[in-house]
Design a protein around this nucleic acid. Structure first.
Lengths: 193, 193
DNA sequence: TGCTAACTGACGAACGTTCGTTAAGTTGGA
DNA sequence: TCCAACTTAACGAACGTTCGTCAGTTAGCA
């Protein structure tokens, strides 16, 4: 399907150059078309962009939810660390997560509100699942804390710091160091002494 | 000085719309000029951009170094938390940090290398100062860990997660929750039982 | 025969940049 | 003190290019 090829090329250029910096002619050329031919598949630049955005959102959400649906052990150490690995994998395997991060951090001004809603949606869902898991672990007394929200937000913070490291330079060594550092301090911070 | 007015307007538009999305005519209009007049003060768009970038780098670096130069107590709990507050302040008080984050996370493609060097420079300096402090605290046995690098990177991770929260939505309530969560878990992770 | 996807051609608008010119301000020597 | 030489900041006009978009046309396939 040509539409998907166009979306793939669009993903690439939007990720590298941002919404304003990506041009339809570049995207079209990437798949051997003239820019006007894109209009046979999409209403325009915004339409193309929003379709790619929703693909990215869908991919990220389903990956994360799928991971937690497989996880029902009482071993948070393994499961949480595995989630960090999943995020790293997601980021390095395809461009969707990098695209998603760029566009949610710094959205094109005229689509700010639309994108903000998508972000709030996915954010709430992931955090809700995560908080449920933490509550289970607290009830099973395998980690400390009285309310689940604290370790949940702290763990999201660890994910954030890994994401920043990935976006920033993606130096394999630095990433490994930071992951180990953040993880070990975090784990000491929520587990029984 | 008109140059500074132009740089201020440029900072604003670069921050909101990114390098490619910001136009010289908008920037000029903001200060009551035509876009051609900008060329009386700067060689071109790149020159203007890079001058703003270096201002932003300078502002961030000196703020952080100045903070740590004042700090020589043996009370990491106060000093580290104070640093988080400083970062939040920096972000909310002026646009320089937001600009810096946007341009270092997702630099304009043709200036990628130049910006990368600036990032490596500031990153190394801040981390070096931070690591020295942590080493002092370790030596004084006021926090745990054998090597200073681990708590340093973990703390940088806490800063990262706060920055992400600031960039993402800047909801005052959410920010406070996340700060408290990340901080309390981090502190438990590096302090004695 | 239609339908789809690609094409060509053209559109107005905006982009960053350069040019030559003007008006105002500064400087330096007679 | 006065005037000429120079500098500075801003301008209008235009440059070539690219942008996103629309209209009309053609080729291939069901």
């Amino acid at each position: 399907m040509k539409s998907n090829e166009i979306k793939e090329a669009a993903l690439k250029y939007f990720t590298i150059h941002g919404y304003e910096g990506a041009s339809l002619s570049q995207i079209a050329e990437e798949v051997g078309l003239k820019k006007q031919s894109i209009y046979a598949h999409f209403k325009g630049k915004d339409d193309l962009f929003l379709q790619v955005l929703r693909d990215a959102k869908e991919a990220e959400l389903s990956s994360k939810l799928h991971y937690f649906s497989k996880v029902d052990s009482q071993n948070p150490e393994k499961d949480l660390y595995g989630f960090l690995q999943l995020v790293i994998d997601l980021f390095q395997k395809n461009e969707l997560l990098r695209f998603w991060l760029r566009m949610t951090f710094f959205p094109p001004a005229h689509l700010r509100n639309e994108i903000g809603e998508e972000v709030a949606d996915i954010e709430a869902k992931v955090q809700s699942v995560l908080e449920g898991k933490f509550q289970d672990w607290i009830d099973a007394k395998v980690i400390v804390h009285d309310i689940a929200k604290t370790p949940t937000l702290a763990f999201v913070g660890v994910v954030d710091s890994i994401l920043i490291e990935l976006v920033y330079v993606n130096d394999e060594k630095r990433l490994k160091d930071k992951l180990e550092a953040c993880w070990s301090v975090f784990w000491r911070g929520i587990s029984h002494s």
